[in-house]
């Protein structure tokens, strides 16, 4: 089964006077994970709700595999959605929560039993132990799993995830993200994933769509977007960037120039295009690397310094910092 390709054509949505989404064109290719990334209030959740059919766009259309579904209610779209607050039914057991979508589809009760048990095992919950529990008797992580199981069991062609792992601690989040990726590859479904966490977005996405103020700012593969940010917003929101003053960059004064911290070389051994003397302002140990702030000509430059390069770096120390001009990105002003 191949996932459904989703397209939004010139979609707009207003709440009162607030334009939540402005004239958006979006393609989420079938059978891949597309992430909508942006700060809160950027319109990413509204976009997801429009895809789900929970919001009706004021203008524009929503296409599933080229078929216009703009007028279809959510229950007719063949989607599954995991909500930010999970929205598990508190008056039902874990089993009944997961069986809900199947019962609505009038699946025979014995088939429901086996499918619910299978999906519980898939999300690492023992059906005999957890099936009869109430939602209030589960931990946060277990509730996330049930929410995921509840949509996976209906085998949706499109899976919509609205920051589903935001309340979890780092380790469980990494594990569940891995599970989602594996499931997606195995089932070949289309996933649209909403998050404000750039790290999560990088690790899960085939395609990333960066939004701000109700518009799409940039889209592409995560590595493409990371290496070639379209503007300063993307450069600073998606990953870190040093904004270089005209005097420092070795580029034209009228441009905005940035460089990623890992491209800045501290005490370079190989020749570099530009090199400055600076003073170490701060050093933070991060395991495999150090984060070093170096002050050059009144500007602070962030540097990621691999531990493997050796040597101790102390605050107040005088260091040399340089980079190659090919690593400096010149951006548009917007």
């Amino acid at each position: 089964m191949k996932g459904v390709a989703i397209s939004l054509r010139k979609v707009s949505k207003k709440y009162g006077r607030v334009e939540a989404v402005k004239d958006i064109d979006l393609e989420a290719p079938g059978g891949s994970i597309t992430t909508l990334l942006g700060p809160s209030g950027c319109g990413k959740t509204t976009t997801l709700r429009i895809i789900a059919g929970l919001e009706k766009p004021d203008a524009g259309s929503v296409l599933f595999d080229g078929v216009d579904v703009t007028g279809l209610p959510p229950e007719k779209r063949g989607i599954g959605m995991v909500f930010q607050d999970l929205a598990l039914f508190p008056h039902m057991t874990v089993f009944d929560n997961i069986a809900f979508g199947l019962r609505v589809r009038r699946v025979p009760e014995n088939e429901i039993r086996s499918r619910v048990n299978n999906v519980l095992e898939l999300v690492n919950l023992d059906p005999s132990e957890y099936g009869r529990r109430r939602i209030s008797e589960l931990s946060g992580g277990q509730q996330q799993r049930v929410a995921l199981a509840r949509v996976l069991v209906i085998e949706p062609r499109v899976l919509l995830l609205d920051e589903p792992f935001s309340h979890l601690d780092y380790k469980i989040r990494q594990k569940l993200i891995g599970e989602v990726r594996r499931l997606q590859r195995r089932l070949g479904i289309t996933i649209v994933y909403v998050t404000h966490d750039q790290e999560e977005a990088m690790s899960i996405s085939d395609k990333i769509v960066i939004m701000n103020n109700g518009r799409i700012i940039q889209e592409g593969r995560p590595d493409e977007v990371y290496e070639n940010p379209a503007n300063l917003f993307v450069a600073t929101f998606f990953g870190e960037a040093n904004l270089l003053e005209p005097g420092l960059a070795g580029v034209d004064a009228s441009d905005i120039a940035v460089i990623r911290p890992e491209r800045v070389k501290l005490e370079p051994k190989d020749p570099v295009d530009v090199i400055y003397n600076g003073v170490v302002e701060d050093v933070v140990f991060q395991g495999p690397y150090l984060r070093v702030d170096v002050r050059i000509n009144g500007e602070t430059i962030k540097v990621i310094y691999p531990k493997i390069n050796g040597g101790r770096i102390r605050v107040g120390e005088r260091v040399r910092v340089g980079w190659n001009l090919s690593d400096v990105k010149v951006l548009g002003s917007e």
Binding site: A52, L54, E75, G80, M81, F83, A87, F89
Partner: peptide, 20 residues
């Protein structure tokens, strides 16, 4: 939000009313 969840799981307005 529970009603919305039920809708995305395939339940029509009547089912949402009686079951949720």
């Amino acid at each position: 939000s529970l009603e919305e969840a039920a809708r995305t799981l395939g339940a029509g307005p009547l089912t949402v009313f009686t079951k949720i």
